[in-house]
Simulated scan of single mutants.
Amino acid sequence: MPELQLDDVTLHYEEDGDPAGAPVVFANSLGTNLHLWDPILPYLPQGLRIIRYDKRGHGKSSVPPAPYAMGALVRDAEQLLDHLNVRDAVFVGLSIGGLIGQGLAVKRLDQVRALVLSNTAAKIGTKEMWEDRIAAIREGGLEPMADSVMERWFSRDFLASDALPYWRDMLVSQPAEGYMGCGAAIAGTDFYTPTSGLRLPLMGIAGSEDGATPPDLVRETVELVPGSSFHLMRRAGHLPCVEKPEEYAGLLTDFLRETGHI
């Protein structure tokens, strides 16, 4: 199991595809692990170097005590890519993964040549909202809030499907400490000013039924960067890579071609 030991955390990561290929780095959402991206892998072009990882407090990565700072999450990604000798990657970040991507692109343009911001924003929610959610998790864990999270994550069609239990189980299996830690990082992050200074190819993706980062919020962030593009996926929620993997992979593939990455 590939792991990177850093000062205060052990990061689990996986690589697929061609080790010599153009790198594409995927950063997943709060309450999921790197298997969030499994559904799209069969639809991506051959020859890419695909890198996925579990952020601190999630999946098979270790769980430092909460709270976490967004700077630590960005630094984790930075040190992982340095460890893997990755430069000029396309970074695909969903939700908190998109915040990490924004922070990394501002800090290390040598590592990120293009950015995909999926179901994310420069600022997600309010500090008070996150503090309330963290307090509820500290009191009762993740299980009591799982159903309401599913309603924010998925479209009505998907909520009625047989696939839902897998993703609900993924949420409740994440360490509560890690969820609270990353929630605190989101609560303390406002990237409107730094993101507005970015000048790189950028594509935004939103889901029409996303209850966590609604389309207008995603679009507002994407439009901070001149020349960016925005795509709305119909009948999809916060995790369109799960609900419509072929369509999602098609958007990524087109972006990779447009940016000369493949």
Rank of each mutant, 00 (worst) to 15 (best):
M145E: 14
M145S: 13
R49V: 11
P214G: 10
A114Y: 01
L11H: 01
V9L: 06
G188C: 05
L198P: 04
A105S: 15
Y53N: 12
S148Y: 10
K244C: 05
A184M: 07
A121S: 15
R87W: 00
W130R: 07
Y166G: 10
F26R: 02
P19L: 11
G125L: 11
D7S: 15
R113D: 08
G47I: 08
A66G: 10
R56N: 04
E15F: 01
A77S: 12
L164A: 05
M180W: 01
D216C: 11
E15Q: 13
E243C: 07
K127F: 14
V86H: 02
V63N: 05
I40H: 02
Y43L: 01
S29K: 07
Y248R: 00
V86C: 10
I262C: 04
T120G: 08
D169W: 10
A136R: 09
D7H: 10
E209H: 09
A122S: 14
E131R: 15
D210P: 01
M129T: 12
G125Q: 04
P175I: 05
E220S: 12
D88F: 11
R56W: 03
E78L: 13
S61Q: 06
L84M: 07
R199E: 14
G93F: 00
G207L: 03
G204Q: 04
M180S: 04
V112L: 06
